[in-house]
Amino acid sequence: MIGAAFGETLAHAKAGDEAAFTLLFRDVQPALLRYLRLIAPDAEDVAGDTWLQVVGGLGRFRGEEQEFRAWLFTIARHRAADSGRSRARRPAVPLDLTEAEQLLTSPDTADQALEAVSTRKVLALIASLPGDQAEIIMLRVVAGLEAREVARIVGKSPGAVRVAAHRGLRKLAGMAGLPATERASTRPGVTR
């Protein structure tokens, strides 16, 4: 998060300052890609489309950092939905074993979940949650959005978002606290 300097950075970016735009990009892009990798197989393409639209509408944007992030992730979700619809019209090759499944069924990675907590492994664990819970946790924790902004993005009430986030966190804590073999046998399964 850029914080107090966001307003000035945004103003410079609107004026065409490439360095200011790069700062905005580097601040948001990691979270954007992590979120998109959860909901879209072609995350990098969707991120590219998202930034193109952000660049086009940057001059008309009004708001603070939270609103900027909420706007950007709303665009990203729409582009991911477009990509999903486009992908649905094309034949897909199913994957037998996702990365999350490999992580959860691999005995040597089980004990590493908490000892050497890596971003990639945690994201894989989150991806193994039910879809709505995983997406809400990502938007809340990784993107740093408020509950009402997440509710607006996913089309749920703020209360439903809160409940889904709590359920997801409980499952995540349960998976983290179980040995790998039990995790693999009791986990709810990958929904996507």
């Binding site: 580097r26 892009q29 992590r34 991120a47 994201l123």
Partner: peptide, 14 residues
């Protein structure tokens, strides 16, 4: 860790 700093590959498309 999920919200950790950017890793290699997190800035693709810059």
């Amino acid at each position: 860790a999920a919200a950790g700093p950017a890793e290699p590959g997190d800035l693709v498309g810059e």
